[in-house]
Design a binder for these strands. Structure first.
Lengths: 194, 194
DNA sequence: TCTATCCTGGAACGAGCAGTCCAAGTTGAG
DNA sequence: CTCAACTTGGACTGCTCGTTCCAGGATAGA
């Protein structure tokens, strides 16, 4: 059965992911996808389906291959607040400098689009994973935290803060301001110095 | 000079604002704008220019007429932390229930679009105003706050938090979770109970 | 070598897009 | 009343969109 594809579907999907991540789904045409990936319309539609399917697959890849590793690092770090701080440092660095500067977070960006059910499912999953990882990191913080905190609620607030960082970085926010804001949020969690 | 328009440009602009706010600029066609406003292509293009100009004007109206009043209330309240809490309560209520439920914040949504310079200018202005209002509210908090806080940094962190609320609410986030997250962030600012 | 199968390239399609243009209508000034 | 200025409705244009389709090429098994 000569059914061997002439390209690597995973590698192509990564290119597509980057295109949609940077430019957004609505403002990116199939013609651009073809130009960037180099494959033909037939192969594209045969392999991935239509544009919306393609976008969903790209977003899924982003959540699984880009976000999830960061979440796992955060959850399994074990240092407590320094792990959370490192997470935000890495995030701000990635969002403001280098190859992906001003691309924001593809999942955060996707919130602005139309409310496709598949997309919403991915976004809810993404948020749940972020919050859970944040919560795990906080559980390891012990007495680095002031007493009496509701860790679930704090995890939620830090997850929301991360969305803020992602959103503002896409508009070219000053990384120093972002660092300051994050530092203030984390400082407030620490016990009062005695 | 019979040059009286047959419609109220301001009222039309509000309808356009709501359309772009809810559906986004890229996914809204001029045909929809015409259908909703009831005016003709000629009048639309003669009055507002092309689609991008129209979007910028709608976004400007949103920032000036929707966001700014909330910022002014926050800045001039004078109660301190309760004012900040009330701001977030109102925000979550507006984002999750009623006429504008799941529309998010038009300015936050605009971050996901292409980096148009005019749009970016509006978004930077919007963020600056939010942060400044937050800072003013915090200055009135006095000893409601734990000592030693950097108010600028805290204001930035609360502004970022607001973006998180706006973004997640568009995906239908549970308002209770949002309230919890906000409450945790504000609680952490208070002095340790003695 | 022959054949069945599947992938590939590119032409073609209809729909929808943003934007232009002009004849017709309306209104205040003279 | 007449005219000039301006708005209005809607036909029209050229383009781009996502999607379909098919002839041709490549390949593995018989």
């Amino acid at each position: 059965m000569p059914d061997v594809k002439h390209f690597d579907p995973e590698a192509v999907l990564e290119q597509v992911e980057r295109l949609f991540w940077q430019r957004g789904a609505a403002t990116t045409g199939i013609a651009e996808v073809i130009a960037v990936t180099g494959l033909s319309r037939s192969s594209l539609y045969a392999t991935y389906g239509g544009k919306q399917d393609l976008y969903v697959q790209a977003l899924r890849r982003y959540v699984e291959r880009r976000s999830e590793p960061m979440f796992e690092t955060l959850a399994s770090d074990g240092r407590g607040l320094p792990a959370v701080a490192a997470f935000f440092d890495t995030l701000i660095e990635a969002r403001c400098t280098g190859e992906y500067a001003r691309w924001g977070c593809m999942a955060a960006n996707a919130h602005a689009g139309p409310g496709d059910p598949q997309v919403r499912g991915l976004l809810d999953h993404h948020h749940g994973r972020l919050r859970a990882a944040m919560r795990e990191a906080l559980e390891a913080a012990g007495d680095q935290l002031r007493p009496g905190l509701d860790l679930d609620a704090v995890a939620e607030s830090l997850a929301l803060l991360a969305y803020g960082v992602n959103v503002r970085s896409r508009a070219g926010a000053d990384p120093e301001s972002l660092h300051k804001g994050v530092a203030a949020a984390l400082d407030a969690l620490r016990p009062t110095r005695t």
